[in-house]
Design a protein around this nucleic acid. Sequence first.
DNA 1: GATGAATGAGAATTCATTCAT
DNA 2: CATGAATGAATTCTCATTCAT
Lengths: 210, 210, 210, 210
Amino acid sequence: MTSTTTAARGRIDKRQAILEAAFDVFARRGYAQACVKEIAEAAKVAKPTVYNHLNDKETLFRQALERAADAVAADAVAALDPLRAPGDDPRAAFLDTARRLLAVFTADRARSLRWLTYAQVGVFPDLVETVTSRTQTRLAESLADRLARLALSGHLHRTDPTTAAEHFLALLTGPLEHRSALGTREVTPAEVEAVAEAGVKVFLRAYGAR
Amino acid sequence: MTSTTTAARGRIDKRQAILEAAFDVFARRGYAQACVKEIAEAAKVAKPTVYNHLNDKETLFRQALERAADAVAADAVAALDPLRAPGDDPRAAFLDTARRLLAVFTADRARSLRWLTYAQVGVFPDLVETVTSRTQTRLAESLADRLARLALSGHLHRTDPTTAAEHFLALLTGPLEHRSALGTREVTPAEVEAVAEAGVKVFLRAYGAR
Amino acid sequence: MTSTTTAARGRIDKRQAILEAAFDVFARRGYAQACVKEIAEAAKVAKPTVYNHLNDKETLFRQALERAADAVAADAVAALDPLRAPGDDPRAAFLDTARRLLAVFTADRARSLRWLTYAQVGVFPDLVETVTSRTQTRLAESLADRLARLALSGHLHRTDPTTAAEHFLALLTGPLEHRSALGTREVTPAEVEAVAEAGVKVFLRAYGAR
Amino acid sequence: MTSTTTAARGRIDKRQAILEAAFDVFARRGYAQACVKEIAEAAKVAKPTVYNHLNDKETLFRQALERAADAVAADAVAALDPLRAPGDDPRAAFLDTARRLLAVFTADRARSLRWLTYAQVGVFPDLVETVTSRTQTRLAESLADRLARLALSGHLHRTDPTTAAEHFLALLTGPLEHRSALGTREVTPAEVEAVAEAGVKVFLRAYGAR
DNA sequence: GATGAATGAGAATTCATTCAT
DNA sequence: CATGAATGAATTCTCATTCAT
């Protein structure tokens, strides 16, 4: 009865488990240093099973990264929610968004994704395209949309929303990357808060109404 | 006497040649995919010679990266020169600096250095420290120094120069990385110019005097 | 009743299909390079079905070869028909037989069978026995029988018919193999005809009456 | 002093040893079943050394076969020597040659070479070309040359020496292959002698002077 | 000090074969 | 009986590293 369902789910589950394990191992070791054997063990599957589901080490890597990229993108875009209905005080909405975005960016998954993507720029350039378009670009565009509405409603100075979005994100991620030394140093919550506040302040001074 | 000198210089030259070749090959292939044989060939030396000069593949990598980091850092810090004596129009000085910095960041060496550093975050975390402290940190601090002087001399609003420096750099590198898709897409000179101008404009609107 | 019959026939058909597919794939790839998956696909069956019908890859190979050997042997022996009632002109009968035999030997199935048998001489020596006894030996003996009758009836010189049969076959297959470079080079019909004629001529000069 | 010589010879020796071991192992196991590890062990070398000298398993196979082919060819051509100066009794010279040729063909190396070549017809067709041209073709042509001279000197009937050569060889190898069941059955010296005598007898009856 | 040759360890990938359905 | 999924065992090949010259 449920047997087919179980079987199908079992297969899907196994695939998911493999991709998850793969992302973890890749994140820990890097693409080349990670070996399929270790991934298989982490996913509690036999090595050939990995090859049955994902033909290549390369495919495995790509799929794992794309999956992570989608998840990160979803989180990041969700972080823009406060800007939907900013109420009277846009500053609070921006600050809220900033905090949420920084939380997403400092989370393990996003950090690992950044590393892995960067690391393979030379080897799989098209993968970088895929990942960045699913994360950075999508996020930047969503943000640009919000900023455009805010400009229309008089909450922001009228300028190119694309550039404004780029700047908002840059003012958050730039200092964060700098302080965390590309994610190798722990950043205290206080520091994160400072980055958020400083970023929002500068952004609003440059782009705020009037 | 001269012979020893010549020999010593020859030895040093060979070492430099190896490190240079190593950086090129690592940049092209990535750490793990690069093989010592290829590096030796690129440096026109026999493989054991590489091992004579640099004990390990790891050592080779570290030294090559540190060497490149020093070069990039020197270029970047030099790009701050216009801010030394900004004259009457700080905007022009900032713009000049911005253009120079972007030129440095888009150059091959800096891009490769970024990739390689990011790529090995998981494997050699301390290397990231070394490289970032020699490049980003040093650059940020030099810039902060300049900004402090400019604030004192009334050319800038008085705020934390460290944060201001972070923001200035972020406003340039963030959009650049975004548009170049981490360096995989070519960025036109016009776009670079646009990034410089937009960044400087926002920076000055937020940090400019008055 | 009918259902059982149908089922049984279906089963047998499937078995035949598998063996046929197996022979094709083995012929194309060789024993070791051929993989069961490919055979299963060629037979339009699932892999485990192959194992249900034929326990082993080895069994599969043996059966496929034996089946092909029987077919080739039947063709070859049939090619001797003209020698049954040679009429007044034995030369014509020999020539006819020679042409038919050469046609059988150059056909794909016989060629593949030869290859595969030879190929596994070291691995399955007894298989060679089985196959050669079903093909070469059987053919040589049938031919010897015919030659004996022809000798009795005065159409041939009286000699050991076994040796004569060997020689007749050798005079055809030897040059054929030589000219086709073991079957890798295409042999034109004209060349085949030349081989047949030269072989028969020499055979009759040596073994013909008087 | 002799050091360089020793080193160079050492390298050459090692290469020869590898090729020899390879041929043995291939002959015993067949191409696909033979594993490089075993070859390396047989040659008393580390596995990578094999790869240093011969890039591929395929290259290894080809070189080993070509080497063996040259050796076999040399032996076979040498077996034709008696035909050079046949004296008054060509029959004796042919018989001598026949015996020698059969000795070459029944020797292990030639048998293995035949197997291996045949076995890979489907996989490396060009290798078959190479090997057969170095052995069969070369032998057939040398023999044809001798036969032409013998025809000119009146010892043989005048016919196409190429065909005659093919027939001579076929009359020897055909029965031999048949009786040895492609080399899997032992053939007694008496049988070999019988094959030689019968072959020569038939050949001379067909091609002898008058 | 520089080099050609050799090696030990390890990794991706493939495949015959077996479960569970 | 037929099949999709899973696995254990092997095998080819690569590479950092070390000798011997």
